[in-house]
Design a protein around this nucleic acid. Structure first.
Lengths: 358, 358
DNA sequence: CTGAAAGCGCTTACAG
DNA sequence: CTGAAAGCGCTTACAG
């Protein structure tokens, strides 16, 4: 069944040179637009290239000029096939960022080398190392490596982390979580006048989550609202985690606060679901907000009030910063992007107004 | 601001060899697990590698052994920032497939080199050529290149296309569109007894769409139903396209058939929306079905009856087939994956039953 | 088991 | 403007 012709055994720049009757140096030059080749030379080379369907080998090129024009991107793969069910959103989140990275890369002729890591893969460091060897720099999504792991990696290759913290050798790009939460709290406490507020947190080891929780506590205190937090409010960024918090609270006979901020939309989804199961109305009995503005947020019942992060821009910025670092070295270490309050109905509003935020 | 230490000027296998007091050949062997190095030798090499944080250069490696362990993936990027609004689904669709490819790649130690192409990028062939030079093989999403373009490309590097058609030199992997549509028509015509059926088509140049339309016509005819098709029913896979078909039909005073199959979920979304605008109820007045089973399909009102394509598996299969082709050559040219009928409520059913299909 | 050396396919000073 | 040649960092027969 295999094709008879075998234009395999790849042709090289030597084949092109021979056919065009010039040296390989000339072929290389016209292919790269260097120097000022005679029109005659250029034409013969181009024709030979076309006739042969020649494409220069990227590995040889990279080895020779020290630039692969590739950036590695590493992200967490959810276990199993959950993406087919409810968890497909966090997933989308990563992909939107990756698209942003790709957009930036495109502008500079770079491509993305993508590699996911499972929660219980054992050879993670090794895998990322292999990726590093194939790239000019690395972009690491949230929660891929410990701080020391990142530092070690950053010793070998330029590294940009997403939604983490900068290390002496790596750059971090993140969204302004703090402002986002503050806008949410002010809207709930001031615009709606809710006097008791809860926060269902995300994974406890997430920098984003820590920042959000701190901002929640300080802003809620500033607004003079009653605050509900603590171990019982510990979620994990998943819908199941959010639902679980509500169920436990209710089972323990607790009275819920008037409004509950969730660490992310996914959590809010679970919370709203759990509330519905118990016959508690959103937003009449309890107002709910999310964080992220994932695509289904607008389709929920009620439509979810949340904070939109510029995910695409986050990715594009990450690439830009990495690129600058690769070509120039140095640069800023901690980059923060603004977010936007998106007011829908789960907070108790009825319109579809979007409030801009810094 | 730039870090003082510069462990740049990459270390090479020579540095490791010197430190370990062995030859570069030995370093290479222990790193690759070849031969039977003395425990002593291996330990010294490993220690040097660790102390130096050495990672072999992928380009040099690829050049030397002729394997990059990279597959290129090319897909269409929507113009602008529409992914933030309604069109984020088709988008997700591509990403799910890419995740599937990545899963397959992972198993064989390959990484994905990703590159998107915009609708009005001019140097497409060139860009894909560059990608080919960096990879061992290419996977092309739907609608990237003409048949001759694909054939030409397949001359230089192993190529697998998705949802297209095989060429003499390239492999194609697709879902069983035909069975999917037939299951839908039978459900509508036989189970529900609808006697008039319409089909809002996708882009006219899409192989998937052609197959679906043909299957629709033949199965609807077999069921003895009245068929509505033609230019007025031409959509383009987008929600706007679907809405437009309905509006035009209604504006022209046409009577809609009892059930309308849509080329994909995105189209169905637009159709349902347009129907709602005109006060036409789904499924009471007109039953609607989609194709794809995108994540929001279950969240629509009413929940969408559709056909689920194994997108993740499609990607994984594409990689597997490409991999086999890279390492062994040859192999099957046209691969078809089964789909599944997902019955929800937009067809007129009330349950949540899922019917399996071959 | 281990080392010296050739070779992978390019790019880029260096001469001419 | 163009060619001969060195070198990029590995892998892999080939000797020993």
């Amino acid at each position: 069944m295999s094709a008879p012709k075998k234009p395999k055994e790849s042709l090289t720049i030597y084949d092109v040179a021979k056919r065009a009757g010039v040296s390989i140096a000339s072929v290389s030059r016209v292919l790269n637009g260097l120097g000022t080749p005679r029109a005659d030379t250029r034409d013969r080379v181009m024709q030979a290239v076309r006739e042969l369907s020649f494409v220069p080998d990227g590995a040889a090129r990279a080895l020779s000029n020290g630039l692969k024009e590739v950036v590695g991107v590493v992200f967490r793969r959810e276990s199993g096939e959950t993406y087919l069910e409810g968890e497909d959103e966090s997933f989308l989140f990563i992909d939107v960022i990756n698209r942003g990275i790709e957009t930036g890369a495109q502008r500079h002729g770079f491509d993305l080398l993508i590699s996911s890591v499972g929660f219980n893969d054992d050879n993670v460091a090794q895998r990322i190392g292999a990726l590093a060897g194939k790239s000019d720099g690395l972009i690491l999504h949230d929660r891929m490596l410990s701080a020391v792991g990142i530092a070690r990696l950053a010793d070998m290759v330029p590294v940009v982390t997403l939604a983490g913290s900068p290390t002496p050798a790596s750059i971090n790009v993140r969204c302004d979580n703090e402002s986002g939460i503050r806008m949410l709290v002010r809207h709930l406490a001031n615009d709606h006048g809710y006097r008791s507020l809860g926060y269902v947190s995300g994974r406890s080891d997430s920098p984003d989550n820590k920042t959000r929780q701190r901002a929640f506590e300080s802003e809620a205190a500033a607004a003079g609202a009653d605050i509900e937090t603590g171990p019982a409010w510990q979620g994990n960024y998943s819908a199941a985690g959010g639902a679980n918090v509500i169920e436990s609270l209710l089972d323990a006979g607790k009275k819920l606060p008037r409004a509950v901020l969730c660490a992310n939309d996914q959590t809010a989804l679970g919370v709203i679901h759990a509330l519905g199961q118990r016959g508690i109305r959103v937003p009449q009995d309890v107002a709910i907000t999310g964080f992220d503005d994932v695509p289904v947020a607008r389709h929920l019942h009620p439509p979810l009030t949340t904070v939109r992060q510029p995910m695409h821009e986050l990715g594009a910025t990450a690439f830009e910063v990495l690129y600058r670092r690769i070509s120039l070295g140095g640069g800023q270490r901690d980059i923060v992007l603004p977010v936007q309050l998106v007011v829908r109905e789960s907070c108790g509003c009825t319109g579809g107004a979007v409030k801009d935020g810094g």
